[in-house]
Structures are given as structure tokens and as C-alpha cells.
Design a protein around this nucleic acid. Sequence first.
RNA 1: GUCCCUGUAGCUCAGUUGGAUAGAGCAACAGCCUUCUAAGCUGUAGGUCGCGCGUUCGACUCGCGCCAGGGACGCCA
Length: 559
Amino acid sequence: MLPQLKAELQSLIRSSAECLGGVPSTFFVMLEAPALKEHGDLSCNVALLLAKTLRCNPVELAEKIKADLLSRLSAAPVGRKVHSVDVVRPGFLNFRLTSEAYCDALGDIPRSGAGYGRTGLGKGKRVLVEFVSANPTGPLTVAHARQAAVGDVLVNILNATGHHAESEFYVNDGGNQIRTLGLSVQLRTKELFGEKIVYPEDCYQGDYIRDMAGLFARERKIVDVNGAAAVPFEDYCVFSKDYLMDVIREDLRLFRVKFDNWSFESRVASPEKIAATLEELKSKGFIYEKDGALWFASTRFGDDKDRVVKKSDGFYTYLAPDIVYHKNKYDRGFDLLVDILGPDHHGYIPRIKAAAQALGKDVTALEGLIIQLATIFRDGKQLRMSTRAGEFISLREVVTEVGTDAGRYFMLMRQVSQQLEFDMDLAKKQAPENPVFYIQYAHARICSILRKARDEASLLPASADTRFFRLKEEAEIDLIRKMIQFPDILDLCAQQLDPAALPRYLQELAGVFHKFYDKCRVIDEDKGLSAERLALVDAVRIVLSNGLTVLGITAPEKM
RNA sequence: GUCCCUGUAGCUCAGUUGGAUAGAGCAACAGCCUUCUAAGCUGUAGGUCGCGCGUUCGACUCGCGCCAGGGACGCCA
């Protein structure tokens, strides 16, 4: 309702401005909600922007536009929803809306229900978001946790804003690291039965390798060193990989992260497919041989240096299957490919983009999104971690300690470009300074009011088509004003490919609600007012619930 | 050395394609429960937006140069 009002106003302002002449056809009329309430409900800076080209005092210009606009408004139906137009100091045009405009918008929320907030921004664009894609060589860590939360929520946001988004996990089940994993487990198994081994530094160090060795021995009924040696090396590899994939799937399930697709390197980028793709690149002149290795001439597309794709020992580097995998993603017909990566992979993006260009693909359809690290604080101290030494905080540790709701919220509450401080103590706290509980509490409080009204006073929310003329309090209008921003927030997140604005918005909405609650009684002697206020808080419940659903966080009805 | 990210209140962070008097939350201090969940609300205090120059009606925002912190730069994945 309000987006339409805004669009109509924008076009009227545009017409008024054009009457003055000299307005470029590409000129965009901005109309936004000002930060300060005294500046009205909507504010427009056309006069400021046009003052330069028209060589005219911005305030005078604004007055001229206003005069023309007022006559247009009195003729148009939108005019009823505009209370006043003011010209203010530097040259802003500030609009104040009638309460009718807001009350119309309020009815929209219960009418759309769980669909409130959905927009058409994406116009059906097909998007593939690849994230986590952890090697099956260990459990997921907090680094993965942030990528998992961001990726999962980004897919929800894209789907809520008119895109067709799918999530994908790419399983690196080929290559070197699986052999190293198998070797690690094999050595630990032998060690288990008393064989003295020298455990290499480049093998996986974590304690979980020992646990896996024990499990493997039990499963294969190995009872001594000879038994361990008799098992084919390949079996160690397969067992370890499958076992860790199960661990990863379970980690993700606990964190409520779902994947639409699982792509396996062994299938998507088999040695034959790699050879074929490299041949294609070679025929185009982007692959050459040097020092017994095959190189990809990525510098031709802006990379710092050329990259080895096949080592002199005959094995492919990680880059070779990754090129093939990205070719596969392109071939599946997506309009946008998003790769969510850790900061340690930022050098990776130019290489893959170079490969995409070399294969004749559209690079602008490939977006590498770097998610900065999350550092964990407990008892006011930062916990250090190092994957190499096998010392890391696992995702599961975080989930079991603070819960999935708080875990997800905290991972999402900062912009992805920012490092994030994850305060375990705060996340666990059931107190208002913890934003997750502040938001969930608002939701539970509303549910409690609705229950009480229904059960004890036989009161139900007013219907969506009510004119809501009883809602006049500032606290009430503030709530409506805040709620109608919800679709814009989702659009903003989708455009920026960053969910961070959403948790912040929900915290603000919860705050506006708590203020309203303190000031206005919902269940009141006046039945008419009560019904309208019940509809108002029910709308807040809907927006909170829709927002939390996008974040993958529960909206409790009781706390 | 090259590249990426960051620098805003005591702390953690916002600041929407350059806009009006730079905002929240936490911590601190002072208040508010006979009434729908006090897991809440109200008020006070807190700032050379890292520094300098430039671009213009206007810069936290854009450009250049410094300073400081973090990270990445393998025939590893």
C-alpha cells in the first residue's frame, strides 16, 4: 500500500519538477523516510539536486515545485493521503501523511499474513548460493557457522524478494585431502593397537581422528596391528569421508541450515571432465606447459599470477576441479552465482572469475562474497583457535552452549564485511540486553495479550478492512511506521547480499512495541479501541514472526 | 613488498546510490510494578566521525596521501 503511495508521489513530484524544465530524463526522484520525525513522514531532495543545473536557489525552487505539486495533489486520489507539504531550510520538501494513509497500510499486514514483506524485486531471477562446502576432513567450526547462517538466511531473503534461490553444498570428496584423511585414521588405528608410529605434521591433528580410529576398528572388528594392516587403505578413506559427512550433516541440521543441492566433486568434476575442460581451455590458448606442470594463464584476465592446474607429479591442483564445478554451475542456467567464502579465500575469486571469462561465461553473474571471521569471547576473553593444530571451537559446541536461536542471531547481526565478536555469555543470557530474547519476548508478550483478550474478555482483533480511526496515539503510529519498513528492509538485504539489516530492524521493532506496551493498554473498557489495538499488536506479531522465520529463529508464544 | 578488510560515545556497532541538530544497544547514574509477561519502560551523561588535503550548495559517506589494527598472498585446499 505505501510503496504504491510512494511511487505515485514520486511521479507527481517528477511532473512538477519537469514543468520547470532542464530535468534530465535519467533523473531519479528520491523519496525517503527522514531520520527525524519532525521532518515529516517522507522527504524529498529534488530541489537540492536540481538547484545546480537550474542555477537557482534551492528553497525558491522547492517552493515552485510545491506550488505546482499542490494543484496536482488536489486533483489526484493520493492527495487524500497527504496531510501537508513543507519546504524546509536547505531546500527539502517534507511530506506529512494523514493517519488514513497509515491505517490503510496497517490492514495490509493481516491481509497478507505470513506473506507480508514479500516483494517482487528479483523478478524471478534464478540464483544459486553456494556456501560452507567444507571438506569432509573434520567437524564444522565457528567459521563455517557464520557462513552457514549467512548463506541459509540469504537464500530465504532472496526467495522472499522475488528471486528463485537455491542453496548448494559442494563436497570436495576427491583429491588429496581424502587420502590424507584416510592415512590419518589408518595411522591412529595402528597406534591404537600398540604400533609405534611417527604421526606426520601434515596429517589431521584433532582428537576426532582418534575417535574415528576406534569406531572404525570396532566396525571392522579389528583386534590387533595385523588386522589394521590387512584392511585396504581405500576402506579407511571411504569410512572416514562418509563418517565426517554424516557429522557435518548433523551439525547443519542442529543449526537449522538446509541445502537444496549437494554437488559432489567426484561426480561433477571427474578426471575425465577435468581433462575435457582443460582441453577446451588449451584449445583457446589459456593453458600452457612449464616446468613439467600445466598452467592456467589467469593473468590474461587480471589475476596477479598464472596458476598451476596440473602439478608436475601428475595430480591436479584444487583449482582444476573448481573450474569444472563452476562451469557446471553456469551450465545449469542460473542468472547469478553467489560463492560464500571465508576471508582466507579472497585470492580465490579472481582465479575463478578468470576461468569463467576464459570459458566465455558472463563474469558479472559470479559474485564472490567474503564473510569475515567470528571470534568467540567467553568470560571476557577471546578464545584463540587454529585449525592446523586441531584446536578450534566447533559449531556444535556453540549450538549446545547457547542454542540455535541465539547462535544464528549472533552470527547474523553484523555486516558480513565486518569481523564479528561473538559473546557467548551474552548469547546465553535470558535478559533484555540479549537482543534475541528482547525480540522473542516481544512476540511472546503479544501472544499473551491476544490469548488473554480472547479467553477472558472475548475480544478479537478488528478485521483488516477496519478504518482504524481510533488509533491516534504517537506510540501507535510509530508502530505502523516501523512495520511498513519491513519489505524495504528485505529488499535492502537482498540488494546488498547481506542479512545484517534484518536482525537490527527486528530489534528496533521490538523496542517500538515495548514502548507502546508501556504507554497504551490494549485490553481496555472501550471495546472498539481494544479491537483496533488488538489488530495493531497482531500485525506486530506477524511482522516479528515473518522476520524471525526468515532468520531461521523460533518465535515463542510463551516464555 | 603486493592485495583485501577495518578505524564513529568507555564497550559492541548503525549511519540507507553525498543531505537537515551523527544514532542505537550495553555498561554508569537517577526513577517507574494494586492493572494485558518489570525478560519491560522513562530520564541523565557520554563525540576533534584515525589524521591531513581535495572535490561542492553540502562529506562519517566520494578522491588522493599518511597513521594504526586485522587478514591473505605455495606445483596447499
